[in-house]
Amino acid sequence: MSKVQFLLNGQQQSVEVPPMKRLLDVLREDLRLTGTKEGCGEGECGACAVLMNGELVNSCLIPALQAEGTRLCTIEGVSTDGHLHPIQQCFLERGGAQCGICTPGMILATHQLLDKYPNPTMEQIQEGLGGNLCRCTGYMRIFESVQEAAALNPLAGK
């Protein structure tokens, strides 16, 4: 067992877990944050995506020990006091979420995308979300949600 500490959604956390335990399982089982989903367990679908030090990562491929000292943001940390983040609001309004199982990862991937490209082109959106599989939407409503979120983003256009 290893003691692993990190900053999770703004709060300091400490867990005592096997060092090779997947971060995904640490979040879901030890910390009971079930918004992060498992779709494939092999880094292919992106349902387990979280932000680590501000960068999108698949939590199913991260051994707990490597989370030591990092800053993590899961879907539970995206909204504040129950107020939806603009990205969440846009996914809700534009039909970006259907069955909802890919949605947490998709929203975090959008988060990283808009951090990097406040005003993304369609190609940048397609690439930025390329690691997040969605079987319901055909992605079109998701693209629209992202574009709408970019339009609301105060950094866009700069």
Binding site: G35, K37, T74, E76, L92, G95, A97, G100, I101
Partner: peptide, 21 residues
């Protein structure tokens, strides 16, 4: 019209509970 999906808010918050949750 296109009102908001009934369970949509829970889904975008990651608060919707699926069986493995």
């Amino acid at each position: 019209a296109s009102p908001l999906r009934k369970e949509g808010r829970a889904k975008v918050l990651g608060a919707a509970r699926y069986i493995d949750d």
